[in-house]
Amino acid sequence: MASLLVLGAGKLALGDMLFILISFVLLTAAVSKFAWGPVTKMMDARSEKISGDLDYADQERARADKLAKEREDALKNSRAEAIDIVNKAKENGEDQKKSIMADAHSEAESVRQKAKSDAERAKEEAMNDAQNDIASLSLEVASRVISKELNANDQKSLIDSYIKELTLNNETK
């Protein structure tokens, strides 16, 4: 009975099972060392690199977007600034124009005033001169009358003519 069992076990060729087990384990070890290990490692590294690259690309894109937005904002600002500057310049010009006009006006006014006062003074001076002249002329006439011995009629007509002449002269001035 025992020998039959042993024989039966032998007939099943259980050694095959053992052989397959061992060879399969050895094959697994060899595959792991020479192919599976390096290749899966590389696959992991690759997937890591790809996800890293994707992250990097996302970051770069966000950065570029931000930069473009900043540029646009700056452009908008600069346009507003330019308009501001032009407006300011216009205002300045207007102000300057106004002040120049006012200056010119006041200067003209002062020039007019001065001319007026000059004329006034010249008139006064002329009057004074005329008075002086009249005085000297009177003296001269008087001296001439005295030097010439005239009769009463002649004397009278002479004085009248002089006085007439004087008043005429005075009026013309």
Partner: peptide, 19 residues
């Protein structure tokens, strides 16, 4: 243990081919 030469040899060859 009883070993079937055909099985073992073929399995070995298959394993070597895989490797």
């Amino acid at each position: 243990l009883r070993f079937n030469v055909a099985n073992d040899l073929s399995a070995l060859i298959a394993a070597i081919l895989v490797f």
